[in-house]
Write a protein that binds this DNA or RNA. Structure first.
Lengths: 199, 199
DNA sequence: TTAGTTACAGATTTCAAGTTTTGTAATTAG
DNA sequence: CTAATTACAAAACTTGAAATCTGTAACTAA
């Protein structure tokens, strides 16, 4: 989890991403050009292309970094060793809260994230895979602890599908980032019952 | 379930909706003006406004009619009197299939539907309420049949939330209308287990 | 070899104009 | 009183020229 840039390449990439993120937050998305980023760093835009293949790759990297920060608290919960059912509930609620906060608190970054998602950007795929890995870990712990006797091989995927309407950007946004924690808690309870009963 | 227009008012409304739907299917959405609809019917556009408050109301009514047709097979399943768990599964799978078919088979209508949803159109709200009523009926049957002993008052809402990622337009579309029946079947099984265990 | 540059063609975006469309009002016909 | 019309202002959309942006190539500096 080192955020430190290692090679000079990485350092330059980080500086470019920092500048791009600052611009993105000031002016919204769609209004940040590669030339703007270059200008902010007092370099020619052609030089930016030495560090990122193209504009999409630059913003994909930006979204990847942003989503990585969002994943932090979640991976912590996944790595704990308390009772799995409580962790599953807390993990789901935290994910819901994170997404809501991003939608209402960082709308520019969120819009960029949405856009990257549309363009089949790797960042979003990587994010979803990371989340599913965390969920798999919690479920594996639940089996080890004996609370969930026989989760199927697809259990993590299935649970993720069942709670995804509480974290999917489009749906969260369509609901005006409303707090649906109470409903999510009930859905998790239902799933937990199902897992205890053995799928 | 009479589709027959009753009053002359309704007849005019139906003729207008028919014309609007035909135009919508030929040319996509965004390209159908109230003036076009009026021209197709050889009336002035001002006359159309005698039957629909405004353009949004016209398209909302169109979407409402379209969604009503989509709800048909589902309400039939909800009204059957076989075993509730099997009906829940079939209902969920049918909803998923319906949405996928609409996305890939009637993209213009679907786009109009999506647009209506964004504009907080009543049609979509009515659709969601109708679906939830059907789900409530199936769950009430399950309790009556003794398979699901103690569903909570919010059970239908919770189940709907858990399977909504398989029917939500945005998500279905983002997945390229892919068939996720197998996954949905697993999610329903999980929910069914949860309901049997008493939620 | 890596960081950086200038110069350029093609794609995309902007912006002001003209045009269409929306929604209303006043009016006519039965 | 309902079905329909014409006429109109304001909002939304189209269009095409000008400006900007993207991505590449050929080059310089350390």
């Amino acid at each position: 989890m080192t955020t430190e840039p290692a090679t000079p390449q990485d350092e330059a990439r980080t500086r470019i991403l920092d500048a791009a993120e600052a611009l993105l937050r000031r002016h919204g998305p769609d209004k940040v050009a590669v030339t703007d980023v270059a200008r902010a760093l007092k370099m020619s835009h052609a030089n930016v292309y030495r560090f990122f293949e193209n504009k999409a790759a630059l913003f994909d990297a930006l979204v990847r970094r942003w989503l990585g920060r969002l994943e932090g608290p979640l991976s912590k919960i996944a790595a704990e060793d308390g009772p799995a059912p409580e962790r599953l509930k807390r993990w789901a609620l935290t994910l819901h809260r994170q997404k809501r906060e991003k939608v209402s608190g960082e709308p520019e970054m969120f819009a960029a994230f949405d856009k990257a998602a549309e363009h089949a950007g790797g960042a979003v795929r990587a994010h979803l895979e990371a989340l599913e890995r965390q969920l798999s870990a919690i479920i594996a712990d639940g089996r080890a602890q004996g609370v969930w006797p026989a989760p199927t091989p697809t259990a993590a995927m299935d649970v993720f599908a069942a709670i995804s309407s509480f974290s999917h950007p489009g749906i969260v946004q369509a609901n005006g980032a409303a707090d649906r924690s109470a409903e999510l808690e009930r859905v998790v309870k239902l799933i937990d019952s199902g897992l205890r009963a053995g799928g």
